[in-house]
């Protein structure tokens, strides 16, 4: 394998810096591309008022828990059964 010459690296650094300043200019002070950055406070262990009944109710649930199937909003997501594995070859990683 060939060593990557320092000059190539330097050119890439210059290009990257140009790219960065271009992004900053385009975005202005407003924002940059990112996904849902809000994180809810997560250390509130909410064992407070009103949890008593919720807690007792779920004990019964346990009995049939093994029959449960994930059924959330993600039913619309294609599961990779015989699907994801087919495409895995194209993966960039």
């Amino acid at each position: 394998m060939n060593k990557v010459p320092a000059a190539t690296l330097a050119a890439s650094v210059t290009a990257a810096l140009a790219l960065l300043s271009g992004q900053a200019a385009a975005d202005g002070a407003s924002k940059e591309k990112c996904y849902g950055i809000a994180l809810k406070g997560q250390n509130d262990c909410a064992a407070g008022a009103g949890t008593t009944c919720a807690g007792t109710a779920t004990v019964d649930y346990q009995a049939n828990s093994w029959k449960l199937v994930p059924a959330g909003t993600c039913v619309t997501i294609v599961t990779p059964k015989g699907h994801g594995s087919l495409n895995k070859g194209d993966a960039p990683a």
């Binding site: 779920t58 649930y61 346990q62 828990s65 449960l68 199937v69 994930p70 059924a71 959330g72 909003t73 993600c74 997501i77």
Partner: peptide
């Protein structure tokens, strides 16, 4: 939790 749904998440 949203992916699996609340009942499944509890279990």
């Amino acid at each position: 939790q949203r992916i699996v749904g609340a009942p499944f998440f509890v279990v």
